[in-house]
């Protein structure tokens, strides 16, 4: 057996000429918690759909748990559990019935089934609600039930597609704790997609940043941040002369954002006074200057020249998220 839970070989998917996933080659080790981080439309879901055999690649292939996703689809399916991005519960059945049905689809015998169902219900703290119809669940409860369902058959590889999308901060925190617990207690490989930087940063052993269907950077959160370089200086200003800051290029990378300037520099502490002098000399009114270590946001900016958040809040996506939340709440 290979040491990898997932290996992709030029994995590609083309939708009528549009490359949603573009020659992706990644290797994910067994037991790893791997994050696919990218903005809306980057190709995360498309990639998972191929890895879980719901969608055929247009070119290339991949191995999941040592099985080929094209030729050994059935073995791949036995090896994986998945929590889809969009809701996929039967809300006319109870939570327990959803789990029972799932366990039977995976050929688990009656006694074992009961034991495992109680076990996963306990993990996601839904024991008391298990016999209520799923329509009466809150969004977070539905999400937790889906996670429980993905685990009932003890998969070797678990896919979580945006597990906390549209959930409130407390529920997100809760779900993160389950994921951390899973990783600690079980020898399970988890692949998680997200466009939340904090989620990727907190949970993942390694992160692959995906944009326009391509993996543009890969590594541990720290490795990725170190690639951006020492420090980030944020200068807030409403001045129309912000462009003058371009002259600071000798210090490091300079980017103009909506409300000021971002500088990627080494030894930021020593440069602040120079920046203040520069601003005064050029008569630019500065509201604030702050210094911080780079975040994954800066990493994304470094590689793509864009902020991941900008795309997140376009109108269409907002509508979609509200729709999803409503579906989860079942109203």
């Amino acid at each position: 057996m290979s040491e990898f839970a997932i290996e992709t070989f030029d994995l590609t998917r083309n939708f009528n000429g549009f490359l949603a996933v573009d020659h992706v080659n990644i290797k994910i080790k067994k037991g790893e918690l791997f994050g696919l981080l990218g903005p809306n439309g980057a190709g995360k879901t498309t990639m998972l759909n191929m890895l879980c055999t719901l969608l055929k690649p247009s070119a290339g292939t991949a191995k999941v748990n040592g099985f080929d996703i094209i030729d050994q689809a059935s073995d791949v399916r036995k090896s994986i559990g998945i929590v889809f991005q969009d809701p996929s519960l039967d809300d006319r059945l109870t939570g327990r019935e959803n789990l029972e049905m799932h366990a039977m689809l995976y050929g688990i015998g009656k006694e074992e089934r009961e034991r495992r169902i109680n076990e996963v219900l306990k993990l996601v703290e839904l024991e008391e609600k298990a016999d209520l119809l799923v329509r009466t669940y809150s969004g977070g409860m539905k999400r937790r039930l889906e996670i429980a369902r993905g685990l009932v058959h003890y998969p070797n590889v678990l896919f979580l597609d945006e597990p906390t999308l549209g959930l409130d901060p407390q529920t997100r925190e809760h779900i993160w704790e389950y994921i951390e617990e899973l990783k600690k207690k079980h020898a399970i490989t988890i692949i998680l997609t997200t466009h939340y930087m904090d989620e990727a940063d907190r949970l993942c052993d390694r992160i692959g940043i995906i944009d326009h269907g391509k993996i543009i950077a890969i590594g541990t959160p720290n490795e990725l941040k170190n690639k951006v370089g020492g420090d980030v200086i944020v200068i807030e200003t409403k001045s129309k002369n912000v462009n003058k800051f371009e002259k600071l290029k000798f210090m490091g990378e300079v980017r103009i954002t909506n409300n000021g300037i971002l500088l990627n520099v080494k030894n930021g502490e020593r440069l602040i006074t120079k920046i203040v002098d520069f601003a005064r000399k050029n008569r630019i009114k500065v509201d604030s200057i702050s210094l911080r270590k780079p975040s994954l946001n800066d990493v994304f900016l470094h590689y793509t020249g864009r902020v991941i958040r900008e795309e997140e809040v376009d109108g269409k996506e907002l509508m979609r998220q509200r729709f999803l939340m409503r579906m989860r709440r079942g109203t």
């Binding site: 719901l54 399916r77 809701p87 996929s88 519960l89 689809l105």
Partner: peptide, 13 residues
Amino acid sequence: EFGFLKEILVAPV
């Protein structure tokens, strides 16, 4: 439409 079909289709049957 409500996504449940995916749950069945991804099962090893």
